[in-house]
């Protein structure tokens, strides 16, 4: 029951990207193919769970004055670990995500969850929070990646499926709108997705209100 509530929180009600508007930089930059989206999402989720757990463990140990410095060192440590592991065992993903893996250190989602949640809650709750927030981030990345890859490149599953991992071609070459793959398309797609979520949540709130009134 608690897990369900947390999951809903991470996915919709308190989604890190769509509602808290955190971690936009990496969301806009790497959401150009399904492979990138999943890879970045899973990397952030793993780092988020680990850093949440460790920071929750250390919450009584780290003095308040230097907590941010402490968090950043812990987060940077985990990011570097993930970066090294990717370079060693998934070089293709590492090359395609490029500088955005090291940049997870300054991804606001991780520091925000450390400060707002992990430093005040138990280890188990923090791990759960890391998992659900990570799932929320990954879900948004996947949605944006699929839309941008399809409209901008005309393929689905780039990096994993299709011949040479180039993705399954759905729209023939020459037709997809190139700009959708470029940063411009990231802003437009993210903006539309945020608008859609706002509209849906407002509508469900209105519905709840009318039901209460009735």
């Amino acid at each position: 029951m608690n897990f369900k509530k947390h999951l809903r929180d991470g996915l919709i009600d308190n989604n890190p990207v769509l509602i808290q508007l955190l971690g936009m930089c990496s969301t806009l930059a790497i959401s150009t193919s399904l492979f990138n989206g999943i890879g970045m999402g899973v990397s952030v989720t793993v780092i988020l769970i680990c850093s949440n757990v460790v920071i929750s463990l250390l919450r009584k140990f780290i003095p308040a004055k230097i907590r941010i410095a402490g968090y950043i060192v812990v987060i940077a440590g985990f990011v570097t670990v993930v970066d090294l592991l990717l370079q060693a065992y998934l070089p293709a993903l590492s090359a395609s995500l490029g500088v955005f893996i090291p940049l997870i250190v300054v991804n606001c989602i991780i520091l925000a969850r450390a400060e707002a949640f992990a430093s005040k809650h138990s280890v188990a709750a923090s791990a759960l929070d890391g998992l659900t927030q990570g799932i929320g981030y990954t879900a948004v990345l996947i949605v944006i990646s699929v839309v941008r890859e399809l409209l901008g490149n005309g393929t689905f599953g780039g990096g994993i499926l299709g011949p040479d991992g180039a993705g399954i071609r759905i729209i023939p070459e020459g037709y997809p709108a190139l700009l959708i793959i470029l940063p411009f398309g990231g802003f437009i797609t993210l903006g539309l997705l945020i608008a859609l979520i706002q509209r849906l949540s407002r509508r469900s709130a209105e519905k709840a209100e009318t039901e209460e009134a009735a």
């Binding site: 901008g152 020459g174 997809p176 709108a177 190139l178 700009l179 959708i180």
Partner: peptide, 8 residues
């Protein structure tokens, strides 16, 4: 017009 740069 700016968006049409999609088909360079």
């Amino acid at each position: 017009r700016a968006f049409m740069a999609s088909w360079p």
